[in-house]
């Protein structure tokens, strides 16, 4: 997994509350192999019309935001289906962090496993960053994971909390499966005690 340490980029606002993972990637694309480019299907049905033309006023299609690597989300961003394809699509599109007041639980977990940082900030902070991004789409936001800070275009510093294990995983680009396998002895010992009767 590619590590996440810090990031400086402008940010694209997708701040409606309760955006679900069906919006982030519609179900008809879920049978595609993991190694495909899922970025093309990121917000597919909001980004493109039925004929495949870009919907010009959708934020992801704004020239200034096409290269953005940060997404500003609303409350409960990426709720619903557990489809990890939502993170693959977000990552494939080019984003590496989402700043939102809250996240769908499974999406936040999936993000960390793919090197994408979910940042939880109070709604007022996300609103301020959103207003700044709309006023000046090129305005850059800086995220510093070791310091757990987001710095807005006006220099305001917001501190965020993150699970220490998630932080470490992101900073190191941890291969979690390989890490767990270092605990093979513990698992085997547990299995011996847990036994067949717990079947």
């Amino acid at each position: 997994m590619e590590p996440f340490i810090s990031l400086r980029s402008n940010a694209v606002p997708l701040v409606q509350d309760n955006i679900d993972t069906d919006q982030i990637i519609p179900a008809r694309f879920l049978a595609r192999p993991r190694d495909d480019d899922h970025g093309i299907n990121f917000f597919r049905d909001l980004r493109f019309d039925a004929e495949g033309n870009e919907v010009s006023d959708f934020p992801l299609n704004q020239p200034a935001w096409r290269q953005a690597r940060i997404i500003l989300g609303g409350r409960n961003f990426a709720c619903g289906s557990s489809r990890e394809n939502a993170v693959w699509a977000l990552h494939g599109w080019g984003a590496r962090a989402v700043i939102a007041p809250s996240f769908g639980d499974i999406f936040a977990i999936n993000s960390v496993k793919n090197g994408v940082l979910p940042v939880i900030l109070p709604a007022e902070a996300v609103s301020a960053l959103t207003a700044a991004s709309i006023a000046e789409p090129e305005a850059e936001i800086a995220i510093d994971l070791p310091e757990q800070t987001v710095t807005g275009p006006d220099g305001t510093v917001y501190r965020f909390e993150i699970d220490p294990f998630a932080k470490r995983s992101l900073l190191e680009g941890l291969d979690e499966l390989a890490f767990t396998m270092t605990h093979e002895e513990d698992i085997a010992a547990f299995e011996r005690r847990f036994g067949r009767d717990n079947f």
């Binding site: 557990s82 394809n85 499974i106 977990i109 999936n110 496993k113 294990f165 499966l177 396998m181 299995e191």
Partner: peptide
């Protein structure tokens, strides 16, 4: 509870899952 695809692979391989 539901899990993502990377976690599915993790459970397949280890029969375990990290949780808080």
């Amino acid at each position: 509870f539901g899990i993502g695809m990377t976690e599915v692979a993790h459970v397949l391989a280890t029969q375990c899952l990290w949780q808080r």
